[in-house]
Design a protein around this nucleic acid. Structure first.
Lengths: 342, 342
DNA sequence: CTGAAAGCGCTTACAG
DNA sequence: CTGAAAGCGCTTACAG
């Protein structure tokens, strides 16, 4: 038992005195096999506790029904929802999912991608780490004829499928909502501007100001305020300035918005009456703060499903429309109490 | 380019007019190879964009440095933290992680386990689905000489490594804390009693009542109150009863505790003065409700690391102490405002 | 419908 | 240090 090897197709063949190829055919449910033989093989395989060796099978067949996923952080709501969505679709197709996290580090992202290339996965699905670097590793994926799908944080120059949120439009609508609620001095907490999604969100903010005939004021835009702590710091500065804002759009995340809310509460500033707050991501907690926080839902689970479906569609369709390489999902503004003062 | 095959060890060998075995040795950094040859091979491999085929290598070596993980839900805080912890350790060891989710369904759990056996993973790490069934699939894992580590929700009868929380002790301490705060009628929201962790938590509750000389009252124990909605329902009933409780221990989850808090708030019942509330899991939101919710932290990330280390320790040590097959992690009571009335 | 043979891409004793 | 050969466990043309 201890050093016993797993039973192979040959063990079954030997036991039944037939050829290994027949066993293989019986097991793979081929039509070119006698029904009686097939039944016997199946029965014997079960008795001998046979389980196929997927490595051998995949090697021989030259394909590996496995998709590699590289995300910055597995345990972040957005990404774990993406993974859950992916898994739901790939499971039904009999695909496995290999998960890696870059921890927002470029070097680690490169490592993960290389490991996945070695694994001969059929597809790599990736959201780029915050610490950016050259993207030869992604070009490598393509060179090795592995499909590549980028999502959320993508490298524009690379000609791959991209599934993104329409960050600009979502931000635009969020800011217009603030304007409609009568806020006049709307501040922006920005994320690192070398990351595309944060640039887009800023663009949406600027467009909404222009559209509303509001001035664009440098002093109302705070860089790199993308954690709760940094959001709180930026807020403290904003609120202490001679002309403080009457609304803050924490475009980076709900965590940042939470920082804003805590500082406002500490200072006894009424939300939403004296200060409107809007976050980004629709983290579960935004519903239960007091007041609840207006935010933007990214449909992360369904985004995961969309990504996976894109791969299978691309695999299965003959003339997949190359024009539709970028799928943009429109996020939804969720209006809650933190901005409802009318 | 389009139908080009990936370069193999043979392509390199041919180009350099040496044997494939030498290429293999050079690539695997063997000592039995001339330094000059090795350098040449490495250079050529890079030029030819060579990447090893892990399937072939693993098949030949008869081992697959991959760990399969089966969890009920990937996108639940506890589990995604476990996975993050696992990944941190396995990444450093050069192992891959294949992730599956059972969606709390037994049939799907069986599917996942079988797929992982086929993959010849080295180890399967699992937390059992809520919908329980026979566990032959787990016995199969053992029969196929794959290591099995159970965590959190485990099957007791199976002789495998188990990494669990000391649920009983944690519940015991939580209830003693409620007693110390002067609460006299402490209700329990239970989870399904066929799941071990929920039985253990109930046991801790009962022990604490006995220890405190409190009566055990059936009318204060509510079955299957393990979601926010069910928690809210149970709470409404409890608070409408002739002798309502003055504290509720939502032993199932913080979500359940949140349901309690919402009902209490709706009814205008002061928390913690008139009603104490304690949850379980230390979900991020417990910190930011008003009042913040007392709960129990399960150290999920470090639990993930512990699990992974257990595997590697078992692999590497010669005489691993078989006695230590169950690792019990003591969760920590986090006292917050929802129970602090003294 | 069945069998014998080749081969997926690698690694590793075995000689030299 | 290097090469020729065998084999990991499977699948698939090729004959029959």
């Amino acid at each position: 038992m201890k050093s016993q090897k797993r039973t192979t197709i040959y063990d079954i063949a030997q036991k039944l005195s037939i050829a290994a190829s027949s066993v293989s055919r019986a097991l793979s449910n081929s039509t070119k096999v006698n029904a009686a033989t097939k039944a016997l093989v199946l029965k014997t395989a079960a008795e001998m506790n046979y389980q196929q060796n997927a490595m051998a099978s995949n090697l021989r067949k030259g394909n590996n029904p496995t998709i590699g996923v590289v995300v910055p952080m597995i345990n972040q709501n957005f990404f774990s929802n993406i993974i859950a969505g992916l898994e739901e679709v790939t499971y039904k197709k009999g695909y496995n999912l290999i998960i890696c996290q870059s921890n927002e580090l470029h070097a680690r992202e490169v490592d993960c991608v290389n490991a996945l290339i070695n694994q001969h996965v059929s597809c790599i699905i990736i959201s780029i780490a915050a610490e950016m670097g050259p993207h030869q590793h992604l070009q490598q994926v393509l060179d090795h004829r592995i499909r590549l799908i980028q999502f959320d944080r993508v490298v524009d120059e690379l000609d791959t499928f991209k599934v993104i949120n329409d960050n600009e439009q979502a931000s635009y609508e969020a800011v217009l909502h603030l304007v409609a609620q009568g806020y006049k001095r709307i501040a922006l907490l920005e994320g690192p501007q070398d990351i595309d999604i944060f640039r887009q969100r800023k663009e949406g903010y600027l467009n909404a100001l222009r559209k509303s005939g509001f001035p664009i004021l440098e002093e109302l835009m705070c860089e790199n305020a993308w954690t709760k702590e940094l959001g709180a710091e930026a807020t403290a500065q904003l609120l202490n300035s001679p002309e403080p804002p009457d609304a803050i759009f924490a475009s980076t995340s709900d965590f940042s918005a939470l920082g804003v809310l805590e500082v406002a509460t500490d200072k006894g500033i009424a939300v939403p009456e004296a200060l409107g707050i809007c976050g980004y991501s629709n983290e579960p907690f935004t519903e239960i703060t007091s007041p609840s926080i207006t935010t933007i839902d990214q449909y992360s689970i369904s985004m995961g499903k969309t990504i996976a479906n894109l791969y299978f569609q691309d695999m299965e369709e003959f003339d997949f429309n190359v024009e539709t390489k970028v799928v943009s999902i429109k996020p939804k503004l969720i209006v809650r109490k933190s901005t409802s003062r009318i």
